[in-house]
Amino acid sequence: MRTVALLALAGAASALRSAPRPSARAISRGALRPRPSALGATVDSAEIEAVLEREYASFFDPMEEKYYEDNVEFVDPFISISGVPSYKNNVDMLAGRTALGAFLFQDAGIALHGIERPSMGKLRTRWTLRVQAKFIPWQPIARFTGVSDYTLSLGGKVVKQVDYWDSVNLAESDDGSEEYVEMSKGAALKDFFDQLMNKEKPPGVASQELPYELLRRTQEYEVRRYPALLAAETKYDTRPEGFDRLGSYCGGSNEKSQKVRPFAPSVISSDEAADEKVMRWPISFAAPGQPAPTGGAPPPGSVMPSVGIAPVPEVVVAVRRFDSAATQPAVKYHTQQLKEGLRKTGLAPAEDAEGRLLFAQYDAIFSLSKRNEVWVPLAEGHPWDA
């Protein structure tokens, strides 16, 4: 199967007429902001921003070709092409609108998180792309996050687009800025191939997991936006005690004597200064952008004084996964590693994240499998701040 996957990918790359990439060099945020020139000084990008919003929402169906120069260049970690027909064929293949694309992919989509104006004649979009590989029996879903840098011509059209993947091009920076570096095609191919070979189901497929919006995926961490929710919560001394109480509530020890099916994961907060530990099981969640769940019956109240129902606001968190036991030393270690990684890639933890550990457990407390995560809320002003 690996051979089949590689042959299919090689065929796709050939069909896309990939070209040699330049040698690796750092592309810092500053480097992507050339001084305004006569070319870009008179360009009004508002119209192009509206075009990009429409195209991202429809996954370029249609691609509004009149807003692209005939010799438009497109470069990403995989390919380098030029010309409107090649550009359009690239998108149509990924969307399954070509013969090769219909064989390889399905359910492709891209979410636009925002548009920035680094300088005159320049635009930067932030996005999340997902596509399902239908030619592999387990049909894995590949997800990419990153930025696209657009250069506009004097006529106000797109003349160049350069894509950077967070999982390939985002590099650690000593000064804590967001910095992208060019990498070989092999690095991009490996990232894609590793996702194709992953048989783990995405959230919401394998079990009842709390949904989230993926904002950034790197090799070391992810950034996710979780919706506002209602959770059953309890303060506890030992973790089995917390699981037992919340399990009793969901098993029927509530005002309606009914079973409640919680969402994974169990979210545990430990405040070292206050010597307080709280376990929460999500019960219901709000629609994106809404402050609280609406519709449906509210969760039943608890008959146990130690268990309550609490609202939890929408939050953007950085996440680092680890597959060992969630002991306090392990949680502290991975939290510190995550915070260091955030600072080196232009992100900052929220102020109230200091002195507080936040982690998530997906498996039963005595399960042999260990899927655990540490979470760090981000400070305001991050790139996805609404």
Rank of each mutant, 00 (worst) to 15 (best):
S80P: 00
V72I: 15
V147T: 08
R343W: 07
P211I: 11
L129E: 10
T145Y: 11
S148C: 05
S207E: 14
R225P: 04
A318C: 07
G156M: 05
E276F: 00
E340S: 14
A10V: 11
V43D: 01
P383E: 04
A287W: 04
D363W: 06
N90L: 13
Y333Q: 13
E220H: 04
M183Y: 06
F135P: 14
R126C: 05
G114D: 05
W281A: 10
S284Q: 14
Y67Q: 08
T145G: 10
A99E: 08
D175S: 09
P300M: 03
Y150A: 05
S367G: 02
V72L: 06
S324V: 04
F74L: 15
I48N: 06
D385F: 11
S153C: 13
V168E: 01
P22H: 14
K190L: 15
G155M: 10
A228D: 11
T234W: 05
S369H: 00
L104P: 01
G308K: 06
R130T: 11
V72Y: 12
K235H: 08
S28K: 00
A187K: 11
P377A: 03
Y221T: 07
V162R: 15
R356G: 01
R21W: 07
Q106M: 12
P377C: 04
S37I: 05
G114M: 12
Y236G: 01
E255S: 14
R143C: 10
P265V: 08
L347S: 01
A274K: 00
K344C: 02
S253R: 10
E47W: 01
A111K: 15
R21M: 10
T345F: 15
E233I: 03
F103R: 15
A353K: 13
Q328S: 02
